[in-house]
């Protein structure tokens, strides 16, 4: 029973979504299917929140290694939740000036907005910016001309890295842009590699992935692959 009901739901909804592509009358039902998922995912957040609290409260009470981080997690969680929920610092809504709590929780001037502007914004930007450092160290370690394919890859990397900056035009601006060898200018070569070789390779990978997705979906719809329900059989 624990398996059968989810399998029936999966098969029914999956087939409905496929058939709705060809039967216009069912298109609204398929939209409802995606809306249902959003509702269920939102409700499941309670589970996630519960798990977060349980794990970090346990770490805190056990004084596990790194318990101070748990304290920061819980503190940040509750502060953000409270300032958002109670709209702390929210300016009155111009349309309803007499109604308290009518202003937006993230309007400029709110504490929530302050958290976003001065904590969330710089922290996420920092995390993303770390990519530059990691790319440099990964390139240094992994880009080795070990064989012919690797040499091709290395050559391509040089063309793209130079072609994507002012160095490309600067190094090859002696090649006339209207002449027969204009395609050898670094910026043109870079665009050519991206347009032709990269696109061809991407398409091949994407076609393979699309077929993989279709086959996996079919297995799930038919109940052949039940591992996502816990266990293979």
């Amino acid at each position: 029973m624990k398996r059968t009901v989810p399998l029936i739901i999966t098969a029914t909804v999956g087939l409905l979504l496929i058939v709705a592509n060809f039967v216009p009358a069912l298109s609204e039902l398929s939209e409802d299917g995606t809306t249902f998922f959003s509702i269920i995912a939102a409700i499941a957040f309670v589970l996630g929140g519960g798990s977060l609290l349980k794990v970090h409260l346990k770490k805190l009470s056990d004084r596990d290694r790194g318990w101070a981080y748990s304290l920061i997690v819980l503190g940040s969680f509750f502060v953000t939740l409270v300032v958002g929920l109670f709209k702390i610092g929210a300016p009155p809504n111009p349309a309803y000036p007499d109604k308290p709590w009518a202003g937006g929780y993230n309007e400029p001037g709110t504490f929530f907005n302050w958290i976003y502007e001065y904590l969330f914004y710089p922290l996420t930007a920092t995390m993303f910016a770390m990519l530059a450092f990691y790319i440099a160290s990964a390139a240094f370690r992994a880009f080795r001309a070990k064989n012919f394919e690797a040499i091709l890859l290395l050559g391509t990397a040089f063309i793209i890295l130079l072609g994507q900056t002012a160095a490309g035009p600067a190094l090859t601006n002696w090649i006339p842009p209207d002449g027969p060898f204009a395609g050898l200018r670094l910026e043109e070569l870079s665009a050519y590699v991206m347009d032709v070789f990269n696109t061809a390779g991407s398409r091949a990978i994407v076609i393979g992935i699309a077929l993989g997705i279709a086959s996996t979906s079919l297995k799930i719809l038919m109940g052949l692959d039940r591992s996502y329900l816990g266990g293979g059989n």
């Binding site: 390139a139 240094f140 070990k146 040089f158 890295l161 130079l162 900056t165 160095a167």
Partner: peptide
């Protein structure tokens, strides 16, 4: 912002060359 991009790309090229020489 293309300025820092230029110097970062050149640094990466230098690192790749150095890495290969070492190899």
């Amino acid at each position: 912002r293309m300025g820092p991009q230029l110097s970062a790309h050149i640094l990466m090229l230098v690192l790749i060359v150095l890495g290969n020489l070492t190899y």
